[in-house]
Simulated scan of single mutants.
Amino acid sequence: MCSHQPPCPTADSPQHRGAMIVSAHPEQGWSLLCNGTIVFDDTGELLPDGQVVSPYRNPAALVVAV
């Protein structure tokens, strides 16, 4: 899919989120990468094969001060 030089990481690569954005929709909270991955603002992903990657959370960010 990628025509960039050097080519972007493929969707099955561990570095797949490093691919270039080809279509950004910040008002809807998602972007399409040139490797076919859809990334969401909440860090979730939808891979080209239909696999869903759940959002990841930083445990330190979830600590609420009382």
Rank of each mutant, 00 (worst) to 15 (best):
59 P>K: 15
24 A>E: 07
63 V>S: 10
51 Q>P: 02
49 D>Q: 10
64 V>W: 01
62 L>Y: 00
40 F>A: 10
58 N>I: 15
56 Y>K: 14
13 S>E: 12
38 I>A: 04
49 D>T: 11
29 G>L: 04
47 L>E: 04
45 E>Q: 15
63 V>R: 11
60 A>T: 07
41 D>E: 14
48 P>Q: 02
34 C>R: 07
33 L>S: 01
22 V>Y: 01
28 Q>Y: 00
16 H>W: 03
36 G>W: 04
7 P>Y: 03
20 M>N: 02
48 P>V: 11
2 C>I: 08
28 Q>I: 02
49 D>I: 07
46 L>E: 08
61 A>T: 07
52 V>F: 07
6 P>W: 02
54 S>P: 08
28 Q>H: 05
45 E>K: 15
29 G>F: 04
35 N>V: 06
12 D>T: 15
20 M>K: 12
28 Q>R: 02
30 W>C: 03
53 V>D: 04
58 N>E: 08
4 H>V: 15
25 H>P: 00
12 D>L: 09
60 A>L: 08
30 W>R: 13
45 E>D: 14
54 S>H: 09
26 P>G: 01
38 I>V: 15
62 L>A: 14
28 Q>A: 03
52 V>L: 13
64 V>F: 00
8 C>S: 13
32 L>W: 01
56 Y>T: 14
30 W>T: 02
5 Q>A: 03
36 G>N: 04
34 C>G: 11
53 V>R: 13
60 A>N: 07
14 P>I: 08
34 C>Q: 11
51 Q>F: 09
13 S>R: 06
1 M>F: 04
4 H>D: 11
36 G>D: 13
52 V>R: 15
58 N>Q: 12
20 M>L: 09
42 D>Q: 08
53 V>Q: 10
50 G>M: 13
50 G>Q: 12
14 P>V: 13
28 Q>L: 10
4 H>R: 14
